[in-house]
Write a protein that binds this DNA or RNA. Structure first.
Lengths: 179, 179
DNA sequence: CTTACCATGTAAGGCGTTACATGATTCA
DNA sequence: TGAATCATGTAACGCCTTACATGGTAAG
């Protein structure tokens, strides 16, 4: 069994919940999924065409809005494909933290530079945490509305835990470097 | 200024501390850097040849051991290149957690499957944490020996914080799913 | 009326992995 | 003597990003 392309699975996963355009799929990635996944238009649009040609999704034009929109819907075959992938064990969880890399080699440039890299990370996380907290609040309040919300909440809480741990580490790391 | 290839920078970073063979570089990646970076032989060996051809490293054959070993040393130009990269702001910290992706779409398959993905993650992290803790202990004891140890310790502590936060989340997530 | 956002797509190329290919040495 | 580990490398290919190219619509 060929290992399923993840971009296909992400898109099918999003479509399994609601019909979407390519543009909307990208927006979901940049908001709900951004804490653990990302993708660009250059991979989304070709993947969508491919899914249609393989019968895993269908495309229709939006008749209602004034805009030119191509709305994609998952098919039964697509749902089967998604379920099959979900059942497979996870192949890899990847982390590539350039910040940590620069820190690891920090001796070459000294503590000042290391601290400024840490502060950039800290700033980014501090800025993003409020969004996650508000998502958490909304999801908790609407847990009963949709079975899916429980799963969304889980991932939001993962992000919150990670961000908080990271912010804590930033503080301690700066202190160690200042010594 | 062309954005420096990260594989080149990682290798130069490792060589900035000590001379190494390609094989040893891979080992460093799989132990000290594994918590935030990875690379395969298929990228390491070609990158090493490239660094030599650009004058950023030099290669010599090992005369002492019985084995066929090619030992690489960073040049002054290589050190300049590395320092320049270290001074640049971080371009991207990436996370691609397939586990979280499968969890996000968990509604499609129900809580049993979600829990088994979480347990796989939990098992992996629980197995790796002791190594990090022992690295932390060793680095703390030898902080005075080498300026670099402080920076290594920082990254080890990052890993510990992240793993602990993640393990905590695993427990809570399983509980929420069991409800 | 202009800025921001909505909306779709392609081409080129970078980056990296997997699988393959080979062989020596160490240790139990 | 067989398994594990040391050790170097290539070829094919997959996946994805960046940059480009184009144009419509909503809102102030």
């Amino acid at each position: 069994m060929a290992s399923e392309k993840r971009i296909d699975c992400v898109i099918l996963g999003l479509l399994s919940h609601e019909d979407l355009t390519g543009y909307e799929i990208k927006k979901r990635m940049d908001t709900a999924l951004k804490y653990f996944w990302s993708a660009s238009y250059g991979s989304i649009y070709p993947a969508l065409s491919d899914l249609v040609s393989r019968g895993l999704a269908v495309k229709r034009e939006d008749g209602e809005s004034g805009r030119h929109r191509l709305i994609y819907t998952i098919t039964d075959a697509g749902r089967d494909y998604l379920r099959n992938w979900l059942a497979l064990p996870v192949l890899k969880d990847e982390i590539r933290y350039e910040t940590l890399l620069k820190l690891f080699f920090g001796k070459e440039q000294g503590p000042g530079q290391a601290i400024s890299h840490i502060e950039a990370l800290e700033k980014k996380f501090r800025g993003e945490l409020p969004y996650l907290l508000s998502a958490e609040k909304i999801l908790k309040e609407s847990l009963g509305d949709d079975t899916a919300h429980k799963y969304y909440l889980l991932t939001a809480e993962f992000g919150i835990k990670m961000y908080r741990a990271c912010l804590e580490w930033c503080g301690e790391a700066k202190q160690l470097l200042a010594e």
